[in-house]
């Protein structure tokens, strides 16, 4: 564990909780892409199957359980409890265009052709693009609430910090995972445009264009 990892994990946790609280407090999921949240739930589910096979630490287990729990809670709030506020018309990204190629890539490019390994690889690839429906939705409506931009900022920060974590681990622990690194770079790049807007608009709600 290094400082980049720890702050990255906490930033990720903050993003997840910000989104849950935003929906819960406002009793509305307007402006939130349910599709992105379903993708994240799939990401956590397929990656954390190792909860059943290997124990790393209490920290590791707790965080994984919290991530999975929050992901499903978010999906529940969007599609069940507050579904009347869900803006399905604007959440029109075709997720099959992500899931199918990502699934194919996971089968083709992985470290080991085994069931759990392919699911892990799939989750890594899928996470790198899971935010696209959300970014697409914002670009379509042309606006995002301030709290939604904080959510995206924390999520992007988590990814950027993981890149530093991997540089750290390469130098001090001598290992690296090319699949995770390439996917992580792709994911971070997707946030660059957003980061720029977030910083220049001082985190205020903004009009967004591609």
């Amino acid at each position: 564990m290094n400082i980049f990892r720890l702050i990255g994990d906490l930033s990720h946790l903050a993003a997840i909780i910000i989104l849950l609280l935003k929906i819960w407090k406002s009793r509305s999921c307007a402006g939130i892409s349910g599709k992105s949240q379903i993708l994240f739930a799939i990401v956590f589910t397929t990656r954390y199957l190792d909860l059943l096979t290997s124990f790393i630490s209490l920290y590791n287990t707790c965080m994984k359980v919290i991530y999975i729990g929050c992901a499903y809670a978010t999906v529940y709030l969007i599609y069940m409890k507050f579904r009347a506020t869900y803006d399905g018309n604007h959440d029109s990204f075709r997720v099959e265009f992500l899931v199918v190629p990502v699934g194919g890539l996971a089968v083709l490019i992985n470290h080991d052709f085994s069931f759990l390994e392919i699911l892990w690889t799939f989750s890594i690839y899928l996470e790198s693009v899971a935010i696209l429906p959300q970014l697409f939705m914002i670009s379509k409506t042309g606006e995002a609430e301030t709290i939604t931009t904080h959510y995206l900022f924390c999520l992007g920060l988590y990814r950027a910090l993981y890149l530093f974590n991997w540089i750290w681990r390469f130098y001090f622990e001598g290992f690296f995972d090319m699949i995770a690194i390439v996917a992580g770079v792709v994911q971070t790049v997707l946030y660059c445009d957003f980061f720029y807007l977030y910083v220049t608009k001082d985190g205020k709600g903004y009009r967004f264009s591609i």
């Binding site: 994990d9 190792d50 290997s54 790393i56 965080m63 892990w120 993981y162 290992f175 995972d177 995770a180």
Partner: peptide, 10 residues
Amino acid sequence: SLEPMRHDEL
């Protein structure tokens, strides 16, 4: 080894 990163990172 690649293993540690697999299960350790979130």
